[in-house]
Computed example of a mutant assay.
Amino acid sequence: MARRAQHVALVLSLNKRFDRKVIEGVTRFVHESGSWSVFLEDDPTAKIPDFRRGHFDGVIADLDDPRIPRQVAGLTMPVVGIGGIESNCSLNLTVSTVGTHNRKIAELAADYLMRFGLHSFGYCGVPATTIDPWNRERQETFAQRVEAQGHACSVFSARYKPSHSWEQLQEAIRAWLDPLPKPVGVLAANDMRARHVLEACRRFGFSVPDDVVVLGVDNDELICELATPSLSSIVQGTEEIGYRAARLLNALMHRRNQQVTHILVDPVTIVERASTDLIATSNRVVADALRVIRQQACDGIGVSQVARAIGVSRSTLDTHFRREVGRSVHNEILRVRVNTARTLLATTDLPLGEIARRAGFCHAQYLSSIFRRKCGQTPGDYRRRAR
């Protein structure tokens, strides 16, 4: 006799890219090891079921939607929340959660932007809510990280929602950016807010990335490519969040785990695009070398060819480069190639051999060896986390 399928409600939004990637992770778990009957509605007004009549065995719910915590509070069935719960939440909401490690996102962003040699930084937030702490966590951690290195960080606390006050929002971002020392590195709360920053820069004459270096979060490819210039962004492990939420709920439904558990999933990588394509050095030898490396690293160029292209000896290039950048020219070429491979793994379905070719590696085995050494995991493991 076949085992009864578990009836699970996915209270997530099909029109949000983050939620869709979470659902992909849930789907992967169900295909691998679950026997679930799934409730999922695309109509936002119908996505929350009537739990009193649905006979559900478990729930995976988006806690960042302000309507949902009140709906799942007090349910006797297992619930796994996607997102976080405020420590001062007025609801008695003791459910397990799987969410983004927002502090790791902010630390990754700060370290990345500081690598450009910047001394001025800003965080562009979204209007605060009473439900989730993610925006505040990213803001506080980013500011602490750059301030610990002796740099200033200015915070834009949004007062305007673009759907209601687009012009006021643009003027407010201009007024925020205008007095900041340039170049300034800006982390935006998410890709949509980063696009608002880029639009303000374009309208009011701030050059990106020469005046303002902009980094978003989510790597929503539609938003990132729609932006002018294209937006660099942090890839969250959203599918991994869905997979681990489904695995946790399955354990709860089968009584294998009775404890309230909170799991944080680290960000995967940064996909670099034009909004962070900054060469922040006054050393002409290093600036010219960095330009050549960015343009030709994946074409197989070596250190001698870089030196020849900018008209200096190899020893002169190495001396200047190590003093300004803190690593060798060879390691910089390798870094660009590995970053290219990371981007292709995260954003395409290309086979590893083709990725190796496009990233400037002679064959897939060499890419795998270098990738494991630099990233601490195989290309295949990295791709699974990123997708």
Rank of each mutant, 00 (worst) to 15 (best):
R3Q: 13
R4G: 05
R4W: 02
A9Y: 09
A9D: 06
L10C: 01
L10Q: 02
V11D: 05
N15V: 10
D19T: 06
D19A: 11
R20P: 01
L40N: 07
D42V: 09
K47C: 08
R52E: 15
D57A: 02
L75Y: 11
V79K: 06
E86A: 10
N88H: 05
L93Q: 10
G99I: 06
D111S: 08
G125Q: 14
G125P: 08
A128D: 12
R136N: 14
Q139I: 10
T141K: 11
A143Y: 10
R145E: 12
A148N: 06
Q149P: 00
G150K: 03
P162T: 14
W176S: 13
L177T: 09
P181K: 06
A188V: 04
A189M: 13
M192R: 12
R195I: 08
V197H: 10
E199I: 15
C201Q: 11
R203L: 15
S207P: 08
P209Q: 11
D211P: 12
V213I: 10
V214N: 11
D218V: 11
N219F: 04
E221L: 07
P229N: 05
G237D: 00
G242M: 02
Q259C: 01
V265D: 00
P267Q: 09
I270D: 08
E272W: 04
A274S: 14
D277P: 02
R284F: 06
V285P: 03
A289D: 04
A297G: 07
C298L: 01
I301H: 05
V303T: 15
S304Y: 09
V306R: 08
A309G: 01
V312F: 02
D318I: 02
H320V: 04
R323W: 04
G326K: 05
V329G: 07
T343C: 09
T343L: 13
L345W: 00
A346K: 03
A346Q: 03
L350D: 03
G353F: 00
I355A: 04
A356H: 01
Y366I: 13
R385P: 00
